[in-house]
Design a protein around this nucleic acid. Structure first.
Lengths: 344, 344
DNA sequence: TTGAAAGCGCTAACAG
DNA sequence: CTGTTAGCGCTTTCAA
């Protein structure tokens, strides 16, 4: 990279010091006499010297590199996390290695091997499937891991997650709060596979909202879709429009689904929000700009990424043995838009 | 990362070979006798040995690491590129360092310094602003660069771009092709700042379409917005709805703008596509799912990323001096949806 | 086909 | 506060 590869030796010679002093000016400037420091810095400038991190990594056994392992960078949920991660990492002088797993265990493992070869300081992982054995496999690599958007089982490691139970509760409480008495309301939950922890949590929150309102959670009507996409949402929306009693509110566990449901409801002759309110989840960019701006639960994705970095760095600082695993939970917020306005 | 840091020496001892042979087994297996190779591999397995890339990098002076430098990873255009880049890089055994510049020249420079310290093989850069001096500064770092979504000036380096002139032409040709004779049509271009090369190119394409249809390009009506957002689009849409003659088609140079324009047009009492057709640009996820599915120009973003990686790797393979700079141009495609349907 | 040996550039004791 | 020194683990001639 640097033209003619210059090392500490050349800088030291030009500055008239030893290379230990060059190292110190770079890594612990405070212990170097100001005058010496100036001379070294001048020599560095003069020679266009670029320190070689590979050498430092080799010597120290660890690299200021963090792996970010996610299923898909084009998915806005993950790319928002990635933004938080890159910002926080840059602030701390760490480089981020972007590893996209496409949720392929083989690929994911290869990424971990690469990170290990680079002697990465650790990795932030957002696994799509909860497969415990895979996570165990990951930890086996020995690297420090922080799980994102998933809670690590009992002291197996650090993690940051979003409180989806609370998010589900916010959504349904809002649907229940509208003018008519709660008992007259009929709410439908459109959800994905309950094996996905997020789906199960959001449902639990929805049921909690019923309980808090003095209703029987089993009165929550549920529709399950195979894929959490606009298209399946639309099909679900049509079906819901045809059912009786006509629902007063629909909570979809993601925004794509909600967008589809609104269309499906419209297809079936129901107006949103005039006849039915719809709440989504996730607050994707498309939420605000759909045919009806979506009321949705906003997840602090940026913060999730930032916090993951901070937890990892804290873990690195701690004594290997002394370290207590940390689990942080972030709170989502309701963003009220037209698809489910505030009660009048 | 590896438990107790094992090196070639330990593997060599266990396999009863020298460490040169271990190195060869890993890097040039074909020159090692099969029996020997087996023994080495077994020892590696046995010891859970993870090679140390820092050592290799130190020795070789270069790292199998590619920097991806973009203004914003949460922007779907860039995250789509990132997907192509990570896929292609992984296929070639390269690691991707994600560097988000927020279009801050300082930050960008710091990222380049980091890449240089890591002895990265090169960097793929998508600069938001075309500032030539900044690009020159980047090349000064000495690293191999490939510009993305921008054409490198005359032999200054490699680049991959999308043919936005052609894209603009596709969009307006489609608007002009609808049933009524071309001469009865009135087209409005809603565009951002012409100082942005993409905006200028798309406009040029739009004018080319007029010429191709035998019309005077100066008859293309133009509206310029400050920001290319949904909100400014909406304002522009309202203004356009109030103008006479009423336009038959509107071409917006990005999808956010198009979404806003549709709303603004609706606000002004014009139905899309019944009274006015609207074409966007970019084919973001939100294009398909807005209030009216958007006809738009799809940019091959994934491919842009993949091609950038390939160009970089080709450049690395070539002799430093012998290398000819490569400029590739990718063709966009029109995706026809409801906002501007095919002529009946 | 395999081995011996010389560093790559940096850090971290330790001594001065 | 600064210098000396001994590697970190790998690649790469050069010989055998």
């Amino acid at each position: 990279m640097a033209k003619h590869d210059i090392g500490f030796a050349a800088v030291a010679r030009l500055a008239g010091v030893s290379n230990a002093t060059v190292s110190n000016t770079l890594n612990r400037p405070e212990i170097v006499a100001p005058a010496t420091r100036e001379r070294v810095l001048a020599a560095i400038e003069e020679l266009d010297f670029v320190p070689n991190r590979a050498a430092a990594t080799l010597r120290q056994g660890t690299n200021r590199l963090i792996g970010l392992v996610i299923p898909d960078i084009a998915n806005p949920f993950y790319s928002a996390i990635a933004r938080g991660v890159t910002e926080a990492a840059a602030e701390h002088g760490y480089t981020v290695a972007l590893c996209v797993s496409h949720d392929d265990p083989h690929l994911e493992l290869r990424h971990f091997e690469m990170l290990a070869e680079h002697r990465a300081a650790g990795a932030l992982v957002a696994p799509l499937t909860a497969d415990a054995s895979r996570l165990a496999q990951l930890r086996r690599v020995g690297s420090r891991l922080v799980l994102m958007d998933r809670t690590a089982p009992e002291g197996t490691g650090c993690s940051v997650a979003i409180d989806d139970v609370h998010g589900g509760e916010l959504a349904v409480a809002h649907l229940l709060a509208s003018p008519a008495p709660a008992s007259d309301r009929s709410i439908v939950l459109v959800n994905g596979d309950l094996a996905i922890p997020q789906c199960a949590d959001r449902r639990e929150g929805a049921r909690n909202a019923f309980i808090a309102a003095g209703l029987d959670p089993d009165d929550l009507r549920e529709v399950t879709v195979d894929e959490m996409t606009v298209d399946s949402g639309r099909i679900a929306g049509r079906r819901i429009a045809a059912e009786t009693p006509r629902p007063t509110g629909v909570f979809c566990t993601n925004d794509q689904l909600a967008l589809g449901v609104i269309r499906g409801l419209n297809d079936g002759g129901l107006a949103v929000p005039d006849e039915v309110s719809v709440v989504g989840y996730g607050d994707l960019a498309l939420a605000a700009d759909g045919r009806v701006p979506l009321t949705t639960v906003e997840q602090p994705k940026d913060e999730l990424g930032r916090v993951a970095v901070e937890i990892l760095l804290a873990e690195l600082g701690a004594d290997r043995a002394a370290h207590e695993h940390v689990t942080r939970t972030l709170e989502p917020h309701l963003v009220v838009r037209e698809s489910a306005p505030l009660p009048a």
